[in-house]
Every structure is written in structure tokens, then in C-alpha cells.
Amino acid sequence: MKYALYLGCTVQTEQYGYEASVRVTMPRLGVELVDMAGASCCGFPPFSSVNELAWLYSSARNMAIAEGMGLPLFALCNGCHLSFAETKHMLEQNPEMKAKVNGKLAKEGLRYEGNVRLVHIFELLHDITGKDKITTALSNPLKGLRFAAQPGCHAIRPSRVGRPDDAENPKKLDDLITWLGAESADYPEKIDCCGSSLAVAAGKATLDIAGEKLKAVKRRGFDGLVTTCPFCFKVYDNKQRAIQVTVGDRELEVPVFYYTQLLGLAMGLKQEELGIDLNQSPVDAVLAKIGGA
């Protein structure tokens, strides 16, 4: 099955470990990814907080490109996926706005019809690919490890525009973790926010909010935190040192992985192919336990 791969700003400009691990693992599951020529920012943020038409135009523009390719749109980032889902929903309900957006798109010869199919990584791995295909692709199942799932706010809320998992009790990422041979467990902080959107206005608050989750994950005895959201990863992994300083706990160490990095390790792929050398959190002990390549 073929999909138009939408990376989004954050993944394509800095979260290379996510992109690399997606590009190398998906084809092994029979998923063909096609890059989107001419793609641009989805608009969420900044335009969602600045100008509604600029936001809807930005999202519709990328959906129009995917429609032109005749492929379902697979957005890697939770925020981009939600931006597309919200825009699709709004333009369905507001034909006048849709016409306005199309008037703007016409300047680049684009047209948004509204028949694009949006696909989230939870759907692609959990619902479409499924357990059998994933488990048979593994050569190095992850035994003896217990991970906390971090689905991320924008993957599960708001349910009224249609999200890939349940708003209050998301389970798909947990399933995906267990399919790799590792354990997962519910924890009360699972659906809490990483706070990354606050980084623009109040950096310290982001670190305080993120620190709460890292403390909980550590206290509850998990071996690490697993996500598919580039914003969550950026905070929990890339900013883990700063979180330690802010909350005043140098020992607040939690290994953080993109799900597709763990999937790749379980497939027997090398760390470098999966961009794991870019993870800034202390992942080495977990990697030693996983072993393999």
C-alpha cells in the first residue's frame, strides 16, 4: 500500500531520528512511502494562533498535493495530522470558507476537493498493518523491558473531529509496544501533555510540566518512555537535561525512544540506521539490554 509521506517542519528540520526510523522500518512492513513534492508547513502553529484563513490555506494546500498524488496522506507529526483533520472538518461544514481557500490555492494551480484520506501512524501500524505483519517482521523481540506509552495530546483529542485513538483511554501505542515483545502498562499520567506548545511563551512552564511526567514514569518503574510525537520527543528527550535542572533533580533520567526506533531494533536494524545516536536521553542501558546489531 502506498502513502504520501508528510514530514512536517519539526521532523524534517531536526527530528531526523523519527524520519530515518520511519523510512527504514515501514517498507519492511509492506508500506510504500512517497515524498510530497512541494509540501509546506501545515500552519499549526503558527497560523492557528495568528490568522484562520492562513492556517486553513496551509493545511488545505498540503491535502491538495496529496489529493493530486491520489494517495492517502500519512502525516508523521501528531500536530500536523490534527491540523489536517480539523481543516478537513471545518471546510466540510463551511463551503464558503472552502471556496475562499480554493481561491487562494488557485494561484499555485492547486485545488482542494476534500476527499483526501488522512492516516495517522497509529492507524497505519495498528489498524492497517496489524499484529501479525509486525510480529513476523521481527528478528530481535524486545524482552524484559517495560515502556510507558506517550500517545500525545493531538493524537487523541479532540474526539469530535475524529482521532486515531480514544481521548480518555488510548491503547494503540501500548498494543504496538507489546507486539515488539516488550511490556506496557497503563499509568495515570499517560494522556497528559508534554507542555511543548508553551515553549514560545513560557519555557520554564514547559519544563515543569514535562518534569511531572518524567518523574511519574521513573517512579512507576518503567524502563523508558515511547512516543510517535516529535514535539513530545523534543521535550522529554532533547530537553531532558534542562528538565533536570528546572525540577532540581539531576537523577531524573528516563530513556526516551520513538516507537519506530524500537520497532527497527526489534527488526534487527542498526542503531545508526534508526538515528538512535541522536537521542539525547540516557538510552544506553536499554540498548545494551536489547542487544542485537
Binding site: Q12, Y16, D277, L278
Partner: peptide, 28 residues
């Protein structure tokens, strides 16, 4: 895009960009 592709650091302080990661050029 919100920012241009960044040079990022590995845990062993090596610099990486899209090219050295083997990733195709960013879209625009």
C-alpha cells in the same frame, strides 16, 4: 517551513544533518 534544516548533535557530540543522515533534501 518554520525553520531551516538544523545541524543536530549525536550523544557523542558529532554533528549530523539531513545529508549525513542519508535523508533526501527537505521539501518546499
Amino acid at each position: 517551513v518554520v525553520q531551516q534544516p538544523q545541524l543536530v548533535r549525536t550523544r557523542s557530540k558529532e554533528r549530523k544533518d539531513r545529508k549525513s543522515m542519508g535523508l533526501p533534501p527537505a521539501e518546499k
